[in-house]
């Protein structure tokens, strides 16, 4: 398998995984959290490059640390989640740059961790993505119902005798694993586009959450594929191109939704349909 075929395979798998887990991120409204996580993996990757261990391992260790700190700060009065995410996010960047500055002899270009370089992913990276994808699919097949229950009705979930923290930990693990595995391909900054955009697009066009969980991975894989092909034919960086494709699909879904709503509106005999709220959480 040539490096280009491998890049396409990686893009497909990473896109599918991001779309699948992104649906959880969007439905549970953890976008800023996921974004902070993607940014904060950057120092982990730089540290791993310095120590010579595998990049996803370094990013994973950094992520676990960061989730811990974030939970701690989030509980402090007058601080909250957004502050915690914001501070960790910039701290991550600063730390990454600092580590890079301390080791000028570093063989790899640190910028590639920021915007990704899908053409240089190794076959072990691809295997890792496949494993995480399988884990995510199995989790959603077996525990999907509980996860959705806890997402849409926490109190009901608790009252029904389930343990909420288990689901919370599980989704955190899934999100972290996705962010870590997506980073080599699309980079610390752009990963959030690949995670949020397919899921948000799927939410616009699907009627049930089950449809979302099917459509989002497909859209993600499509973004990966189209992004890599476009980047080759236009001769630009692959990571940004994938992110842009994903965002384009989201825009397309938005327009599609508008058109469908307009086409349907006359049939409703002038009465404006209330917005569909079934897939929306209260903020």
């Amino acid at each position: 398998m040539g490096y280009f075929e491998q890049a396409i395979l990686a893009a497909l798998l990473i896109g599918a995984l991001s779309g699948l887990v992104g649906t959880l991120v969007v439905l549970r409204q953890r976008t800023f959290f996921a974004q902070a996580l993607t940014h904060a993996t950057f120092p982990g990757a730089v540290g791993a490059a310095i120590l010579g261990v595998s990049i996803p391992l370094g990013a994973a260790v950094a992520s676990v640390f960061i989730v811990g700190v974030m939970t701690l700060i989030g509980r402090v009065k007058r601080q909250g989640n957004q502050v915690a995410s914001g501070i960790l996010l910039t701290a991550g960047f600063a730390l990454g740059v600092l580590l890079q500055g301390l080791n000028p002899s570093l063989p790899v270009k640190v910028d590639s961790y920021l915007v990704g370089s899908i053409l240089t992913v190794s076959s072990s990276d691809v295997t890792l993505v496949a494993v995480v994808l399988a884990f995510a699919v199995l989790t959603l097949v077996f525990l999907g119902k509980q996860i959705m229950f806890s997402t849409f009705d926490v109190n009901g979930f608790r009252a029904a005798g389930y343990r909420e923290w288990l689901i919370e930990v599980l989704t955190l693990v899934l999100i972290t694993a996705t962010v870590v595995t997506a980073m080599p391909a699309v980079g610390a900054i752009l990963a959030i586009a690949l995670i949020a955009a397919p899921a948000a697009a799927a939410r616009l066009v699907s009627r049930t959450t089950t449809q979302m969980f099917v459509i989002a991975p497909l859209l993600g894989a499509l973004s990966g594929l189209v992004g890599v092909l476009l980047s080759r034919s236009l001769d630009v960086a692959a990571g940004p191109m994938i992110a842009l494709t994903a965002a384009g699909l989201f825009l397309l879904a938005l327009v599609l939704r508008r058109l469908v709503a307009q086409a349907r509106a006359p049939r409703e005999s002038g009465v404006r349909r209330p917005p569909r709220t079934s897939l929306r959480l209260k903020s």
């Binding site: 409204q29 976008t31 800023f32 948000a200 965002a247």
Partner: peptide, 8 residues
């Protein structure tokens, strides 16, 4: 939603 902001 915050997802839209992140995407744009």
């Amino acid at each position: 939603s915050d997802a839209a902001i992140a995407i744009v």
